[in-house]
Design a protein around this nucleic acid. Structure first.
Lengths: 348, 348
DNA sequence: TATTTTAGTGCAATCGATTACACCTAAACT
DNA sequence: AGTTTAGGTGTAATCGATTGCACTAAAATA
């Protein structure tokens, strides 16, 4: 064995006194090679512990069989679950997944896109950062003939496919559910309304109210960051209102949790006096003593579907820009924080 | 611009009527190139939107500037945090991180190692799967001259560096803490004792007991899987004992949670009647109404340090096999589930 | 003025695998 | 027998960047 353990087709070709071309063909099961030679080559390859160099292959073919995934932070459950989905779907097809974080900074996002392109990835999956307001870097990806796929946080760019959940429907579902529990004055802890996803959740909330004959009161809408503290602060503000709400649809599980903790301090009983629903189905929501109702965004499925869309596009021979917009249905997860049905049974 | 947006140094060299070698040298700031030429090249490169092809570079240099990270599942907070740490440390050095999952299957692990080697990664970071009992695939990595680094779940192989936490100390700390709260009959919810990490946690527990004059009762040790259900089941079994424990050190936060839920059903007050400590500092532990004491494994730090060890080794010119064993100190996080000090204050 | 430096470039091989094209041999055909 | 055909291999170019060696012209030195 050579130093470094680097065995190439040339080493095999020398050993067998055939050309490297023959070895390559044999290894790739080219029908033009006689079965006798093929067997010799395979045997030698095994014996010499030959390993195909995917780098050389990629350079020649123009396909690296690598894809990039860009997310704000890897260790958020939602994103890591999506990444898991992508990996599980793409792995069996021989792709490797390269991950990058933006830390919510557009500058970093642009840089990540550039280095991924340098690395010759075959495609890029991404959820845009909160601060992204330019699209040049996305167009660059397209210009290089690479597949670009947005998931969850997207921008509308011609030629770019996306996989998102129906945030409007999610907001609608959650709000409707609160209404069904008898709540009449439903507040909303909103996220940054400049982001499409939060805007849609908000709009779903408003529409559900209207469709059920309830008024959408602007005083009932609180802008929050996705954190427990922010939720607690919003809850305090909310409780300063003369006409106090009797429920809240929170665009984040963290703010929902903050609200629960804060409202408890005021002696509010949940769900008896107040119902609450979060968003994202973070793992902690189901483990609480008072499990929190929430919206499941099915991130694993989202990742798998994004990967499937990629596979369809990358294999397509047509040069046309195909774009596919997948909108997944969110799943309402009803738990104790908003479920009064269990309550009635207990009371009866 | 050429079709595909693929601009090479040859395109630049043609445009400027110089050789590709000159272009390459200019771009790499080789001092042999006159500043005039260099400027021309840079200007042309910018104008033509030239992008370096890292694949070609990697093939030539033998360094891909990619590393692989293999974990059981990406979307476990502990692992995704480690990955985040690795990415954040390595990114600024120009490395990309490729992620792979084993689903705890050795066969998959072996395959992942092989494909990563084919891809010519410069190094591999991994936490071995629960079912791994062979080491051939690790030796293969070493034979190819690649850096291998274990984190958290390791095997002792010469030439392989590792970054782990001191699980013995963690078990000791947690147990000692329970003792300090006045607990005398401390049980242990153990993991699979064939895995080094769980064995060490167990041993730390036993030693803490002994050092404090308490007897380690085999009846007090329950083997569990890392799940809420398993914790609940263990708690039930535990409560069938004649001599009931007054505390448990659980090797997993999930089993700790299961135990808390189950013990509540028996009317046990925590921490008044029973103290409990988990392990891992899963996000949910701090959000509970009764926040759970636990051990923080500082995964982000673990990832960063693993990356630093990699950087040291990969840059080292010496061909010697260097190995570095880093053992991080765990951090005991005391919360309400085992903190009686707050209690006394309240009582006073 | 003759000769040695030095700066700046080009040539061509190289990394490892793939593949169009050319070529040769033996079998199959008219 | 002469010629086509198919099967099986080799040659050499290619993907894009890097780099040892050779070379030229101008500058520095004797």
């Amino acid at each position: 064995m050579k130093e470094n353990g680097k065995v190439t087709i040339y080493d095999i070709s020398k050993k067998l006194n055939v050309s490297a071309a023959t070895v390559s063909r044999a290894l790739n099961n080219n029908p033009k090679i006689s079965s006798k030679t093929r067997e010799l080559v395979f045997a030698a390859a095994k014996e010499m512990n030959y390993k195909q160099n995917r780098l050389a292959q990629a350079l020649k073919s123009g396909k690296s069989k690598n894809v990039g995934v860009i997310v704000p932070y890897i260790n958020r459950n939602f994103f890591s679950s999506i990444i898991r989905g992508i990996e599980e779907e793409l792995g069996p097809h021989g792709y490797h997944v390269i991950i990058c974080q933006t830390h919510e900074q557009m500058a970093t996002e642009v840089e990540q896109v550039n280095t991924l392109l340098n690395t010759q990835v075959d495609g890029i999956f991404m959820s845009i950062s909160k601060t992204t307001n330019k699209t040049d870097h996305f167009r660059k990806v397209l210009n290089e003939g690479k597949t670009l796929i947005f998931f969850d946080r997207k921008l509308d760019i011609p030629g770019v496919s996306s996989v998102v959940i129906d945030d409007f429907k999610a907001g609608y579902l959650a709000t409707e559910h609160l209404i069904s529990q008898g709540c009449k004055r439903i507040a909303h802890f909103a996220g940054d309304l400049n982001l499409e996803i939060y805007k849609n959740r908000h709009d779903g909330y408003v529409n559900a109210l209207k469709d059920n004959g309830l008024k959408a009161d602007p005083d009932y809408i609180f802008t929050t960051l996705s954190s427990v503290e922010s939720g607690a602060a919003a809850a305090r503000k909310m409780w300063e209102l003369k006409k106090k709400p009797d429920a809240v649809f929170s665009a984040s599980d963290y703010t929902a949790l903050g609200a629960i903790q804060e409202l408890r301090k005021f002696g509010i009983r949940i769900p008896e006096d107040f119902c609450i629903s979060g968003f994202s189905n973070e793992p902690f929501t189901k483990y609480m003593e008072l499990p929190i109702s929430t919206i499941d965004q099915t991130p694993l499925r989202m990742g798998k579907i994004a990967a499937q869309v990629f596979l369809e596009q990358v294999d397509s021979t047509q040069k046309l820009t195909i774009e596919k917009k997948v909108v997944l249905s969110p799943e309402l997860v009803v738990r104790n924080s908003s479920d009064r049905s269990l309550l009635k049974v207990a009371v009866q």
